[in-house]
Computed example of a mutant assay.
Amino acid sequence: MNAVGRNDEILDTIGALVAEERALRNRSSRNLGLGDTEQERLRAVEVQLDQCWDLLRQRRAKSEFGENPDEAAVRPPGEVEGYQG
Protein backbone atom coordinates (compact mmCIF):
# COMPACT_ATOMS: atom_id res chain seq x y z
CA MET A 1 0.00 0.00 0.00
CA ASN A 2 1.30 3.47 -0.81
CA ALA A 3 1.90 6.19 1.78
CA VAL A 4 -1.33 8.03 0.94
CA GLY A 5 -3.37 4.83 1.23
CA ARG A 6 -1.83 4.06 4.60
CA ASN A 7 -2.54 7.61 5.78
CA ASP A 8 -6.15 7.21 4.66
CA GLU A 9 -6.34 3.97 6.65
CA ILE A 10 -5.08 5.77 9.77
CA LEU A 11 -7.59 8.58 9.21
CA ASP A 12 -10.40 6.00 8.92
CA THR A 13 -9.30 4.50 12.24
CA ILE A 14 -9.23 7.97 13.80
CA GLY A 15 -12.75 8.62 12.51
CA ALA A 16 -14.05 5.39 14.02
CA LEU A 17 -12.37 6.10 17.35
CA VAL A 18 -13.74 9.66 17.45
CA ALA A 19 -17.24 8.31 16.80
CA GLU A 20 -16.86 5.79 19.62
CA GLU A 21 -15.49 8.46 21.96
CA ARG A 22 -18.44 10.75 21.19
CA ALA A 23 -20.92 7.92 21.77
CA LEU A 24 -19.36 7.12 25.14
CA ARG A 25 -19.30 10.78 26.17
CA ASN A 26 -22.94 11.24 25.08
CA ARG A 27 -23.95 8.15 27.02
CA SER A 28 -22.07 9.51 30.01
CA SER A 29 -23.86 12.85 29.95
CA ARG A 30 -27.30 11.28 29.41
CA ASN A 31 -26.85 8.61 32.08
CA LEU A 32 -24.90 10.73 34.56
CA GLY A 33 -21.74 8.68 34.27
CA LEU A 34 -20.25 5.54 32.80
CA GLY A 35 -19.75 2.16 34.35
CA ASP A 36 -16.25 0.91 35.08
CA THR A 37 -16.02 -1.01 31.80
CA GLU A 38 -17.15 1.99 29.77
CA GLN A 39 -14.74 4.28 31.61
CA GLU A 40 -11.89 1.89 30.83
CA ARG A 41 -12.94 1.76 27.18
CA LEU A 42 -13.12 5.56 26.98
CA ARG A 43 -9.60 5.81 28.37
CA ALA A 44 -8.35 3.18 25.91
CA VAL A 45 -9.97 5.06 23.01
CA GLU A 46 -8.30 8.30 24.13
CA VAL A 47 -4.91 6.58 24.20
CA GLN A 48 -5.45 5.01 20.77
CA LEU A 49 -6.43 8.40 19.34
CA ASP A 50 -3.25 9.98 20.68
CA GLN A 51 -1.21 7.16 19.14
CA CYS A 52 -2.97 7.38 15.77
CA TRP A 53 -2.55 11.16 15.52
CA ASP A 54 1.12 10.81 16.47
CA LEU A 55 1.67 8.10 13.86
CA LEU A 56 -0.01 10.21 11.19
CA ARG A 57 2.18 13.21 12.09
CA GLN A 58 5.29 11.04 11.92
CA ARG A 59 4.31 9.65 8.51
CA ARG A 60 3.54 13.09 7.09
CA ALA A 61 6.83 14.51 8.39
CA LYS A 62 8.82 11.62 6.92
CA SER A 63 7.09 12.08 3.54
CA GLU A 64 7.71 15.83 3.62
CA PHE A 65 11.43 15.33 4.18
CA GLY A 66 11.87 12.57 1.60
CA GLU A 67 12.02 9.72 4.08
CA ASN A 68 10.05 6.49 3.98
CA PRO A 69 6.76 7.04 5.87
CA ASP A 70 6.48 3.28 6.41
CA GLU A 71 9.37 3.58 8.86
CA ALA A 72 7.12 5.52 11.24
CA ALA A 73 6.01 3.45 14.21
CA VAL A 74 3.33 3.58 16.87
CA ARG A 75 4.91 5.00 20.00
CA PRO A 76 4.05 3.83 23.52
CA PRO A 77 1.20 5.62 25.31
CA GLY A 78 3.56 7.36 27.72
CA GLU A 79 5.28 9.14 24.84
CA VAL A 80 2.12 10.42 23.15
CA GLU A 81 -0.37 10.90 25.98
CA GLY A 82 -1.78 14.39 25.99
CA TYR A 83 0.48 15.48 23.15
CA GLN A 84 -0.40 19.02 22.14
CA GLY A 85 0.53 19.52 18.51
Rank of each mutant, 00 (worst) to 15 (best):
M1H: 01
M1T: 03
N2D: 12
N2S: 05
A3V: 01
G5R: 05
G5V: 05
R6S: 00
N7W: 03
N7V: 02
N7T: 07
N7C: 12
N7L: 13
D8M: 03
D8S: 08
D8K: 06
E9Q: 11
L11E: 13
L11C: 06
L11T: 13
L11S: 11
L11G: 01
L11D: 11
L11Y: 02
D12V: 07
D12S: 10
T13Y: 10
T13I: 08
I14S: 04
G15M: 02
A16K: 08
L17V: 03
L17A: 03
A19M: 05
A19Y: 02
E21Y: 06
R22K: 12
A23I: 06
A23C: 03
L24P: 06
R25T: 12
R25Y: 04
N26M: 06
N26S: 10
N26E: 13
R27A: 14
R27V: 06
R27L: 14
S29T: 12
S29F: 11
S29H: 10
R30E: 15
R30K: 10
L32G: 12
L32N: 15
G33R: 14
L34C: 05
T37R: 15
T37I: 15
T37M: 15
E38W: 04
E38K: 09
Q39I: 11
Q39M: 15
Q39S: 15
Q39A: 12
Q39T: 14
Q39W: 10
E40P: 03
E40T: 15
R41G: 07
R41L: 13
R41A: 10
L42F: 06
R43Y: 14
R43Q: 14
R43N: 12
A44E: 14
V45K: 04
V45W: 03
E46H: 08
V47L: 10
V47D: 11
Q48M: 09
Q48E: 12
Q48C: 05
L49V: 01
D50Q: 04
D50T: 06
Q51V: 05
Q51T: 05
Q51W: 04
C52R: 12
C52P: 00
C52W: 09
W53M: 14
W53D: 12
L55S: 05
L56E: 08
L56I: 04
Q58H: 04
Q58E: 07
R59I: 00
R59S: 11
R60I: 15
R60H: 09
A61H: 13
K62Y: 14
K62S: 10
S63Q: 11
S63R: 11
G66V: 07
G66S: 08
G66R: 09
N68V: 02
P69H: 03
D70K: 08
E71N: 09
E71S: 09
A72P: 01
A73D: 11
A73L: 11
A73W: 12
V74Y: 08
P76A: 13
P76Y: 03
P76F: 04
P77I: 04
P77V: 05
G78M: 04
G78N: 07
G78P: 03
E79G: 02
V80D: 02
V80T: 09
V80Q: 01
V80E: 00
E81L: 14
G82W: 00
G82A: 02
Y83Q: 11
Q84Y: 07
Q84W: 07
G85F: 10
G85I: 01
